[in-house]
């Protein structure tokens, strides 16, 4: 029976206003949630367990406040919850993040890892393929379909000329897009179990950071535009797009 891991991340709610204060983003007043695509990864992990049995372990990387996303995963029904962290860490780069998560995946001897296609904070999408490379595993990114087979899984991934129905032997890392499943909601029993659940904390060896974050800045602001009242102004806007903007 497969040993299934799912990577989850705590991020600001996608509806949150992000302010820059000094030279860093100020996240002191945002609401924190599990990154939206991770909810699909979590659902995929639960579907895998329901199809083939096994154990699902949710893994996150971060300080103690990240326990909340693990408890959220526990309330959905995962078996184990693990947080990778060392109090000496801060602002980890991709190389450090992937090394830390890879070490946790090895620690629990997982055979398949599900993650979101990207996290809502960085939007990078580097973690899934990066962890797969370090494990020397196959990977499929941005999947929009998933079936379980005796010796592996079948996924659907977007390709240039359509969607590719692709077979993958395990072990593998699978990054999930939205749309192929509907993430379940926790029930009362799950929420009560999650309250009592213990978060296992793991340390890991990580390399030095390869980048230095100099500053955060607000996005460039556009000059204010023109607003017209009523559909009779559509021809004027079309003319402006043609003659001033040169985009049509």
């Amino acid at each position: 029976m497969p040993n299934i891991a799912v990577l989850v991340k705590r991020v600001p709610d996608t509806n949150a206003q992000i302010l820059v204060s000094g030279d860093r983003v100020d996240l002191s007043n945002v609401k924190w949630v599990m990154s939206p695509y991770d909810e699909y990864a979590l659902e995929a992990a639960m579907m895998h367990k329901e199809a083939q049995g096994g154990v699902v372990t949710a893994i996150t990387l971060g300080a103690p406040e990240c326990d909340k996303v693990l408890k959220d995963a526990k309330a959905i029904g995962v078996d184990r919850i693990i947080r990778v962290w060392d109090d000496s860490w801060s602002e980890l780069d991709s190389n450090q993040t992937q090394m830390a998560l890879t070490s946790a995946v090895k620690e629990i001897s997982a055979e398949v890892v599900y993650c979101g296609k990207s996290a809502a904070d960085t939007g990078a999408g580097s973690t899934g393929p990066g962890v797969a490379e370090r494990l020397d595993w196959a990977s499929a990114s941005n999947i929009i379909g998933l079936e379980f087979e005796d010796s592996g899984i079948e996924v659907i991934v977007p390709a240039a000329s359509g969607n590719a129905r692709t077979g993958i032997s395990l072990p593998a890392v699978v990054s999930c897009d939205k749309g192929f499943c509907k993430p379940r909601k926790p029930n009362v029993k799950g929420i009560m179990m999650a309250k009592r659940a213990q978060v296992e904390v793991l340390a890991a060896e990580i390399p030095a950071s390869g980048i230095n974050i100099v500053s955060h800045t607000p996005p460039p602001q556009k000059a204010p535009g023109q607003t017209f009242d009523g559909a009779t102004n559509v021809p004027a806007v079309v003319a402006a797009l043609r003659n001033d903007a040169n985009v049509i």
């Binding site: 992000i18 939007g123 950071s209 980048i211 974050i213 955060h216």
Partner: peptide, 18 residues
């Protein structure tokens, strides 16, 4: 690079190959 889907920008310097 944009972070938070472009709600802020992140300016970085590389300390080696990347």
């Amino acid at each position: 690079q944009p972070i938070f889907s472009g709600k802020a920008m992140q300016n970085i310097v590389l300390s080696g190959d990347a």
